[in-house]
Amino acid sequence: MFTKDMKMADLIHKNYLLLSIISRFGIPLGFGDKSVEEVCNDYKVNTYFFLDIVNSCSYESYFTDVQHKHFSIVSIVSYLRKTHKFYNDQIVPEIQCLITNLYQNCFQQKDNVKLLFNFFEEYKNELLIHIKREEDIVYPYVLDIEKAYETKKISKELTEQMKNYSIKDYLNEHSDIEEKLLDLKNLIIKYLPPTSDFKYRNKVLVKLFQLEKDVNDHSSIEEKVMAPKIFDMENFLFSHFSIVKLNIDDE
């Protein structure tokens, strides 16, 4: 497991997939032999939050074993937003571009590669909708909850909102966005007949594996870090302000 006294450079040597994650924190390369804590302080990043993220991306059982709580919803949401941005602006366009290259470079299977391109487009749209819902509704809500919890003041709007929507509903509706990715991988590995092009077919796959892992890690931060914190704060607010949740099932 990674700790605050380790060298930042060693993290990347251990798990190079952390590269894109470290960039999301706004930390550039070139940190010499500085420790994790020193680098985090240099760039005003919460060390504990940083460690939770890099550990959870590197050790599967991390969230069930240990977890720090010394960081705010503000920092979580800001990281989650940066991750969304990484999907939208970087890795998704990269994959589209690679599939296009694959299309241009193969002589047979063109029609079939086109199908895969469209399939990925479908996935992209699903992902966009998922992200938009979180950025427009869920993240603003959790930020409001944290604010109300800290100031012990609650607005009328938020009271109303809490009656109808809580983080539990988010967990229930939080959809599985990895299924299509899994399918696409299998279609390329197992079912698309051999192509004359090896290079782009492999590159597409490597990127798909990366995206899949990142989406998985991202979802566990939403579900296992953000949601439980909000759940506790909500419970406090429900009792402190005597808010009663409307139960739609009772109608």
């Binding site: 079939n112 199908l115 895969l116 399939f119 479908e122 299924e179 299509k180 899994l182 399918d183 696409l184 299998n186 279609l187 197992k190 079912y191 698309l192 007949p193």
Partner: peptide, 17 residues
């Protein structure tokens, strides 16, 4: 058997085959 989970994935499998 196929390890394909979505309807659109199955559709592509069906076309490829």
């Amino acid at each position: 058997k196929l390890d394909i989970h979505t309807v659109s994935g199955l559709t592509i499998y069906a076309i490829l085959n």
